[in-house]
């Protein structure tokens, strides 16, 4: 996430380098997917069931958002075009992977 997406604002018109923005969003998605798989395995091994697992997932995602914010040096608009990119991007998409790996690890460790 090294590349800066925006130089600044000219009046109301944001100046955004589209390629860099795409690359930033891509790296956000990558880290989210990675985290959703890892957190799924962790939740399964810990034996979380029911609502606890989903709570765990959203806590992990919130921590990830925080980490991304730190990584962007707290100036979201330098790297992204809106806050949603950092907070919501990839959260729902990762849920399916999370559920799969959660179930997989949980079954292997606890059910059999």
């Amino acid at each position: 996430m090294a590349a800066a997406a925006g130089g600044g604002f000219a009046g109301d018109v944001p100046i955004i380098h589209a390629d860099n923005l795409v690359s930033n969003v891509k790296s956000v998605n990558y880290s989210r997917t990675f985290l959703s798989i890892i957190s799924g395995v962790v939740a399964g091994i810990w034996g979380l069931t029911g609502l606890m697992g989903f709570v765990f997932y959203f806590i992990v995602m919130m921590v990830a958002s925080l980490a991304l914010l730190v990584k962007a040096k707290f100036s979201v608009h330098t790297y992204f075009d809106s806050w949603n990119r950092i907070i919501l991007e990839g959260v729902i998409g990762g849920l399916m992977s999370f559920v799969l790996f959660w179930t997989f690890a949980y079954d292997i460790v606890h059910i059999f």
């Binding site: 891509k26 998605n29 959703s36 798989i37 399916m96």
Partner: peptide
């Protein structure tokens, strides 16, 4: 079926975007 849908994330990690 669960695998079919859930593995998409894994593929994007190991095979690239």
């Amino acid at each position: 079926f669960l695998n079919l849908f859930g593995l998409r994330g894994l593929f994007s990690l190991i095979l690239g975007e």
